[in-house]
Amino acid sequence: MSRRHPGTRMPKLAIGSASALVYVFFYVPVAVLVLFSFNQARTGGRWAGFTTDWYSALADNDRLLTATWNSLFIAIISTAIAVVLGTMLSLALDRRVFRGRTAAQQVVYLPVIAPEIVTGVALLAFFSLTLGRLNDMLGRSAQDAIRMGRPTIIIAHVAFCTAFVALVVRASLRTLDPSLEEAAQDLGANGWTTFWRVTLPAIMPGVLGGALLAFTLSLDNFVITFFVSGPGATTLPIEVFGQLRRTISPEVNAISTLIFGASTLLLTGALGIQSAVSRRRSRPDGDSGPDGAAVARPDAGLRNPDAGASHKSYPSNPQLIGGGKP
């Protein structure tokens, strides 16, 4: 049934090679930095022989390790909060009609359009004002004042990450037929159950995609982070940008290589688990059971599990998209 792919007759070969090109584009710079992390030369540009010295030096480099940890900590917390808030926001904006909706929408997308450096400066002014007041109120002295640091960075990151998550999730919601949720409720599910069992699974690609983007944005943010950070809250981009004044130390290449390797390993592991699970669950125990049918369709997960009703200007009828076969 699905003889062809959505690109119609755009030759498969062209699509494949264009895709390969994108991956090459992404990975060549990564390959360079991995290579440099094993290069004896301090300044890049020439190969001076293989070494693992930078990795052992890294173990003693508290500054770089602390900065890396700060970055990961901030990115993980910010992403977690932003995914919840962003999904809620997009639900409110898409599934509810209320007065001031347009205004709310504009507010949500402010972070997306505001130039970072302005946001950074404005946030610095804002935090200095509010923290100053807070310290006065609590009677804190200069010694134990509440200061900027990881919490203020997280506040700033959550704000822009939430907007990006809302944007991406909203796009998923747009293609989800509300009649599905209504159907679930007709069948007796309450709002919460409907959300967990129908809405969330359907928009999961959007939620995960939003989470990935938010994590990336937070991890790489430099401009805003600089302005709202405080003592001891230096993140990896700030540390690396500082090193540009001389030359980037090969230890930075080493830590980048480690981050790259670790994320590859962890995500490959997760994929392995996923594949094992889906293989086990798709074992032929019949597709009549409550679980069988969908699980037997291995790609059901990322698809819209709806009943194929037309919605908006474009219908989505996923069981025709090459699904439905064991």
Binding site: R197, P201, M204, A270, Q274, P290, D291, A294, G301, A307
Partner: peptide, 20 residues
């Protein structure tokens, strides 16, 4: 498509999310 398939699709996904 029936309700049951929908919900089981949910479980598959939840599992995936849990993995992440």
């Amino acid at each position: 498509m029936t309700k049951s398939t929908r919900i089981s699709g949910t479980r598959g996904l939840l599992l995936r999310l849990l993995a992440v």
